[in-house]
């Protein structure tokens, strides 16, 4: 296996959710790859399919949903096809995740240390004592004061910031090659946001892992991620180096998304006209066509494919 191949390559990934009364098509041909030792952001409005993409990578799609097409290649395996049992060995070991609400991510009736230690014992050949010692070390390396005592504490005794560190310690315990962070900064104030992003960056850099940062807030991407993928309507609209895309967005959707997060001179905030397209049907044309100021007839009838344009990939027939 050559080291230049991407860590994980997602190709034409499609998923379907079957409820009692309707069928949804939340992912309709998602393609992007994450390189080794790179921090990448997956941005888009809520309902664009970004969290579901993360669930698919972890093999944890909600009940009633399934992958209908496409591949997720990691280390020469297709994660779209492997069994739950095989996935158990990958989760927490090769791919890990931290969620939005770290306190709710920890089991309330077990000590934080024992929860981290269990993850270590599941994936590594170490005994009870060693795993507990290592859990304390991990908490310490994440800057938790008095880690020995803190490991014996329960989640309700932790502050939000400490819980964030504990959840990250658990996720990084087995040195995964990919860490997914699902909206880790939503609901935090600006200073805390920056702390969390710094902590994530520091951890993945230290362990030479890749980061997939899932967020609706494109403004937090710039300082953290080298690559960005913009998602809408279950498809990738534009992928490329963060600096390039933030400074010179080419896809009209990316442009509008960036605009909606930057205040104009008079302090007003703009929003993208129209509402997010519900994924109730399979796409015939561009998912953004209904809201796009540049849309023409063809946009409604032709599904734009991701195509290279300079250093980036873009899915739009008008550029």
């Amino acid at each position: 296996m050559s080291n230049t191949s991407p860590l994980i390559q997602i190709d034409n990934l499609s998923a379907r959710i079957r409820n009692e009364d309707q069928t949804l098509f939340p992912l309709q041909g998602v393609s992007f790859s994450i390189e080794r030792n790179v921090r990448m952001a997956l941005v888009g409005e809520s309902g664009s399919g970004k969290s579901l993409t993360a669930s698919a990578i972890l093999g944890m799609l909600p009940t009633g949903s399934q992958i209908t097409d496409g591949t997720i290649i990691m280390n020469e395996r297709n994660l779209a096809l492997i069994s739950e049992k095989e996935f158990q060995k990958i989760r927490g070991k090769e791919i890990s995740i931290v969620f939005q609400n770290p306190k709710a991510s920890l089991n309330p009736v077990r000590t934080v240390g024992s929860q981290i230690a269990e993850v270590l014992r599941v994936h590594e050949r170490i005994n009870q004592k060693q795993s507990h010692d290592k859990a304390i070390q991990l908490l310490e390396s994440l800057g938790l004061p008095d880690p020995k005592k803190r490991a014996r504490d329960y989640p309700h005794q932790y502050s939000g910031g400490m819980a964030q560190r504990a959840a990250l310690a658990m996720a990084m315990a087995c040195q995964p090659s990919l860490l997914i962070a699902d909206e880790p900064t939503s609901g935090l104030d600006a200073t805390l946001q920056q702390q969390v992003l710094d902590l994530l960056t520091q951890q993945v850099q230290h362990q030479k892992s890749s980061l997939l940062l899932i967020t609706h807030d494109i403004s937090v991407v710039g300082a953290t991620c080298e690559q960005v993928a913009v998602m809408y309507g279950g498809r990738i609209m534009e992928v490329g180096p963060t600096e390039l895309i933030l400074r010179r967005p080419m896809n009209p959707y990316t442009e509008k998304l960036i605009e909606s997060f930057s205040r104009s001179q008079d302090g007003k905030m703009t929003s993208i006209p129209g509402t997010v397209r519900p994924p109730t049907t399979e796409l015939k044309g561009c998912p953004f066509a209904d809201r796009c100021h540049m849309a023409n007839k063809q946009c409604h009838t032709h599904l734009p494919e991701l195509a290279p344009k300079g250093d980036r990939l873009i899915a739009c027939i008008n550029v």
């Binding site: 972890l58 944890m60 996935f87 158990q88 060995k89 990958i90 989760r91 927490g92 070991k93 890990s96 995740i97 969620f99 609400n101 709710a104 991510s105 920890l106 089991n107 309330p108 929860q115 269990e118 993850v119 599941v122 994936h123 959840a167 658990m170 996720a171």
Partner: peptide
């Protein structure tokens, strides 16, 4: 959420 998290950590 905590069961989902534990599952995401590979707990059998």
């Amino acid at each position: 959420q905590y069961i989902r998290s534990a599952r995401a950590m590979g707990i059998p």
